[in-house]
Structures are given as C-alpha cells and as structure tokens.
Amino acid sequence: MSNDVIELILADHRRFEDLFRKLRDNSQDRPAALRELARLLVAHAEAEESEVYPALRRFHDVDDHEVEHGAEEHAEGHQALLALMELDGPESDDWDDKLEELVKAINHHLDEEERTILNAARDTVPEQRRAELGARFVEVRDERVAAGCGDLAHVRELVEATKDRVD
C-alpha cells in the first residue's frame, strides 16, 4: 500500500462502501459492521480535519471553500451515523431509512471530496509531501481508532460540537 495520502483516503472510501454493503445485507453481522464503520468513519474524518485539510489549504489549487465544505459534510455524516447508532439495531423499523440517509450523506461527501479536493491535491501537492501527509494521516487515524472514537458517547459529542456546521 502506498503512503500517498490520496491513495490512503481513497482506500478508506472504498472500505466505507464495503461496509455499507454489509450493513444492507441481512446475512451479515450488521451490528459489527456498524461498529467498524463508526470507528473508521470518525477516525478518518478527524485525521482529515486535523492533518490533511490544514496542509492542503496551503496549496493554491486546493480551494479553501471545498476544504471547509468537506468538514461540514463530515458533521452531516456524523449526524446520520448517530441516528443509525441510536436505533435498537437492524431489527428496528427505522434501520433501512436511517442507513440510507447515512449512505447518501457519506457517498455525497466521498464523491465531492474525490472530484475536488483530492484531484486538486494530486495535481498540485508534491509526491513527497503527499507521502508525509499519508504517514501522519494513518498515525492519527489509528490513534483515534485505538482511543475508541467510534463509540456512541464520542459520536454524540462530535454531533453536539459540530451542530453549527450543519445547515
């Protein structure tokens, strides 16, 4: 696996999509898939916001507005994640609706981030800097996972702390 921050972020995005498929599949352990998604999604967003986004703002072709919008979409994703996590599990009557709200919010973010922020970074950020950012991204993401960032209490705190970002 490359240390390029762009490739690492894209690999996480593909993992989110895999986990969405599991969450939709009745034959899968959907509570386990939700726990894994919560850990990775929150850790990924926190690492992007603390390490990647601030570094990318320094490059002229990476739009500040797009970076800020990415952070807003993280907050929207956290709200949708919390709504799903607060249900009584896949047996809940609201599971499918809340899952689709989460999938829609995250897929929208992934699409925009890949088309705008990541494509601009690929064109303007030197390979060496992308590798440095990648190493730091993985380090912070893994630290956040180890700290339990995907637990219900932390997701609630995130939603409360970022509610002003969401339209």
Rank of each mutant, 00 (worst) to 15 (best):
H13L: 12
L37H: 02
M85H: 13
L10M: 09
A80H: 08
V103D: 09
A11L: 09
E48M: 05
A75D: 12
R30N: 11
N107I: 05
A47V: 00
L19V: 15
R165K: 07
R156Q: 12
K104M: 10
A120N: 10
R144S: 00
D93T: 06
D63G: 03
F59S: 03
N3A: 10
R35L: 08
A71Q: 12
L10A: 09
V5E: 02
L10P: 06
V145Q: 03
R35Q: 12
E76T: 03
G150T: 01
I117S: 01
R15E: 14
H44G: 02
D64R: 03
E160A: 14
I117W: 00
T162S: 13
E51N: 08
A47Y: 04
S2P: 07
E114N: 15
R39A: 13
W95D: 07
E73S: 02
S2M: 06
D29R: 15
V42C: 09
L118C: 08
L56D: 02
V166R: 14
E114L: 11
D111F: 09
I106D: 01
R136A: 06
V140W: 03
A161R: 15
R30Q: 15
R30V: 05
F137M: 01
N119P: 03
A38M: 13
E86H: 04
L10N: 12
H109D: 14
L158V: 00
